[in-house]
Design a protein around this nucleic acid. Sequence first.
DNA 1: CTTGACTGTGAACATTCGTTCAATATAGAA
DNA 2: TTCTATATTGAACGAATGTTCACAGTCAAG
Lengths: 202, 202
Amino acid sequence: MVNIRSNPNDEEKLKSRATEISAFYSNKGRMPSFSEIGQLFGFKSKNAVFRLVNRLEKLGVLGRDEKGRLLPGRIMTAPLKVLGTVEAGFPSPAEEELSDTMSLDKFLIQNPSATFVLKVSGDSMSGAGILPGDMVLVDKGQTPKSGDIVIAEVDGQWTMKYLKKRGEQVVLLPANPAYKPIRPKTELKISGVVTAVIRKYK
Amino acid sequence: MVNIRSNPNDEEKLKSRATEISAFYSNKGRMPSFSEIGQLFGFKSKNAVFRLVNRLEKLGVLGRDEKGRLLPGRIMTAPLKVLGTVEAGFPSPAEEELSDTMSLDKFLIQNPSATFVLKVSGDSMSGAGILPGDMVLVDKGQTPKSGDIVIAEVDGQWTMKYLKKRGEQVVLLPANPAYKPIRPKTELKISGVVTAVIRKYK
DNA sequence: CTTGACTGTGAACATTCGTTCAATATAGAA
DNA sequence: TTCTATATTGAACGAATGTTCACAGTCAAG
C-alpha cells in the first residue's frame, strides 16, 4: 500500500490554494466564507471546502478564532518574507519556504493611535542616515531618553535632533557637523520620539 | 430650532467608538459582528449597533462589501496618520483629524510575492544613508536600471551597490569612498532591486 | 406642561453561516 | 475485473448573521 497523503503534487496544489485565499484576504480585507472559497476553486459543495479548510488548518497555514471564524494564518498576515543578511547571499527557494513572514505595520508600529508619519526636510540629520525626503515614524506617547532622536519645538522652531541629557542640561544635537548644537534658551517642547525611518525609492 | 446633529460631544464619542472598532480589527484581523460591537459598547440590542454603524458609514469611516459585509474604512485599513514635514511643525489636533491614513505594507510593497527583506551588514552604502543593521526591501521581479541600488552576485560574492551602466559597460558603485567600484570580470548576476530602506530604533 | 427628536430595548424575520450525513464518482492496488 | 480509499456532490441541520418593526426612556425646546 502507498501512502497517498504525502503525494508532493497534492502539497503543491494545497499551497497554491492557500495563496489564492491569501490574495482574497489582502484584496478584500476579510477572509472569504466557505461558499466564496468554493466559488473560487469551482467547488459545488460546501463540504469540499470544509475538508480543504481542515487540511489547511492542520498544515498551520489557516487559523481559527476563539469564535471559530477563519483567520489568516502566518502565511496570510503579511506577504513579506524575512530573510538573511545581504552578505549571506540571495535566498534559495528552499530557504524562502521555510522563512517566516511579517507585517511592516505590526513590526514598526507599537502604538498605532499615537504614531504618525512626518516627511523629512533638511539635512541636519544626514549623519545618522536620515536624508531629506525620508519618512520618519514618530511616537508621541513615548518618554524621550538621552540618545533618542526626537521631534522638538525650540524657541518657536520645529526640528528633528538627537536628544542628549547631561544632568539637568538638555542639548539638541544634529548629526551633521555643518549645524551647531542647540541649547534651548526659553522653552523646549519634545513632542515625539522617532521610532523608525523609511525611505522609498520607487 | 437647534441642529443637535452637529453636537461636538457626539462626534467625539463617535470617533472614539470608531477607534475601538479599528482596534478590534487590527487585533483580531477581522471586523467584529454586530453582536460583538454591541458587547464592546454595552449595547443590549443589535438595533442600537445597527444605527451606530449606519452613522459611521455616512461619515465614511466604515465601508461595506459588495456583499454587504462590514469593511474597515479609510481610518481602519492602517492606523497610520500621514502628516506634513518636520519643519512644518507638529500637527495640531485639527490637522490630525483631516489627514489621510495609509498602510505601510501597501505603501512600500507593490509586488508582495516577489518582495522580501534583507538585513544590511557592512557600511559600503552608508553614503546613501543605508547603515549596517538597516533592513532593505528587495524586489526580485523588477528590471534594474542605471542608478538603482541592486543586490548582485559578482564573482561569487554578494553585495549591495549602485548600478551604473555606461554603454555596454556595467559598474557596481559603492556609496562609501573607502570602497572601490566593482567591474565584474567573469559574471554579474543581479537578483533584485532595492525598493525601500527601513530602520527601526526601538 | 406638551412636543419632538434621539437613543436604546426586545422581539421577530429571512438569509447566510459552518457543520454533518449519506450517496455517488473517481482512481489506483491487488 | 474487484476492492478500497479518497474526492466531490447534494441535502439537511442549528446557530449566528444583518435587518426591520413597534415600543419605552431621555432630554431640550417651545
